[in-house]
Nucleic acid binder design. Sequence first.
DNA 1: AAAATAAATTGGTGCGTTCCAATTGGTTTT
DNA 2: AAAACCAATTGGAACGCACCAATTTATTTT
Lengths: 250, 250
Amino acid sequence: MCGILNNIMSEAIYVTVQADLKQKIYQGEFPNLKLPDERSLAEQYGVSRSSIKRALNVLVQQGVIFKKRGSGTFVNPLYLKNHAIFQHEGSNLGVSDSFRVDGQAPSIELLDFQVIPATPEQQQALFLNDGDFVYEIKRLRRLEGVPFMIERGYVPINVLPGLNRSIVSGSVYEYIEKTKHRTVTKSFMTIMAEPSNLEDQQLLELKANEPVGIMEGIFFMDDGTPLEFSTMRLHYKYLRYNAFVSLDSE
Amino acid sequence: MCGILNNIMSEAIYVTVQADLKQKIYQGEFPNLKLPDERSLAEQYGVSRSSIKRALNVLVQQGVIFKKRGSGTFVNPLYLKNHAIFQHEGSNLGVSDSFRVDGQAPSIELLDFQVIPATPEQQQALFLNDGDFVYEIKRLRRLEGVPFMIERGYVPINVLPGLNRSIVSGSVYEYIEKTKHRTVTKSFMTIMAEPSNLEDQQLLELKANEPVGIMEGIFFMDDGTPLEFSTMRLHYKYLRYNAFVSLDSE
DNA sequence: AAAATAAATTGGTGCGTTCCAATTGGTTTT
DNA sequence: AAAACCAATTGGAACGCACCAATTTATTTT
């Protein structure tokens, strides 16, 4: 036996194994919800046990499987039943993507765009010094014509010197990928709720007693550079954050 | 040089190193926000580079540091300033623990306790069959006297046959640890917001225009058994969910 | 039969090594 | 100077080994 991997070169082995296992799980190849033991998997895939462990750990992190020492590795039954909701899990990066519905991206209305000195809070969040400047980008997002989010973003000018109204009226992340060949892969977010203020009510078509959901956070590029500090005020019906939480090695 | 670990036996090395590094980071031992390279750390701690990598990866996962291949490992500036909110990050298991303040656990008032047939939604979430029964547990939680959460929990009777009013007036999770030697380490949650209803306003002392935050989710025991389906309605000021999101190996 | 014990199974931890890949900084060339 | 090049640094991937710890299963004892 000599491995069953169709490795699309340049992908790490553990990534490939992880993807393959996930697919098999989804296709119901483990009817009793029990995976083969690690040593067997290593042999089947023709890789070391270390690599198998790594692949499995990724799946544990994703909530797809769980392990039980001495007993084995099992599929999370919820993943099979309800794997749809696992799509979004832990991935709220790139608003355009997160809120895509039936392939339709939200439209963007640019409300404001200017350069301002960074406030202390922004300096802190974006790793800036006194006297540094940031773009202030205020946008209203609509989904099929319905406004659902007011977004205030702050981007250091020295990170993206070339920003202009035209770029900012579309996806900034696409612009980054195309020009700087960087991706935005990390974010630190806080999720809150508040009563709506007058502006919220006007722009998001809310009644006085209806609240907004707030997602505030910092987005990082894959090299660790903080790209944006963003405050998003959402129509409350559109705030729906899914989280799979695991308390293992802490 | 031969290691600087005060290892409180029975803790894994990488856990110890991770904890030690986190403390050092917090105490500002890396003023330039740059950690020593992995090979040096290995030598300093007197452990293998593998163990250092593992410890560092935990910290990356927690959002405390980030790595940049070819360049080094750096402290997330956000962690330094705002490390308080990192405490909760990714750990909303066991409400009593999550909302502990200065070591003071929230008090519990039992509002309702009965056995009912599981609704279809509950059956789905808790992996039950038609005709199965669940406990319905309705509680009000207070922090230093101030009510902040209405909690409705549903627990399958065949998972915890011995539940009674007395147990349910305290921490169910403690009860499980003591009697079944299981821990609750995983949850799948959805976070939302809504206008408050009359009951919310009464119990949580909210004004009419003030909303509630809603955390709804399923809690699992470490062997994968779904333990509880819970809906928590929070005073909006107490809803503050922190998430470090990473889109790496997916 | 029931309980205690032993063995096999299975995941966890840790080490050390080899090689690779991205980044940085200095050096040479143009 | 500016650009191209080269070398050193630093994290990433993978392997394979040795041993530990929790659990399950089989065996023995009571």
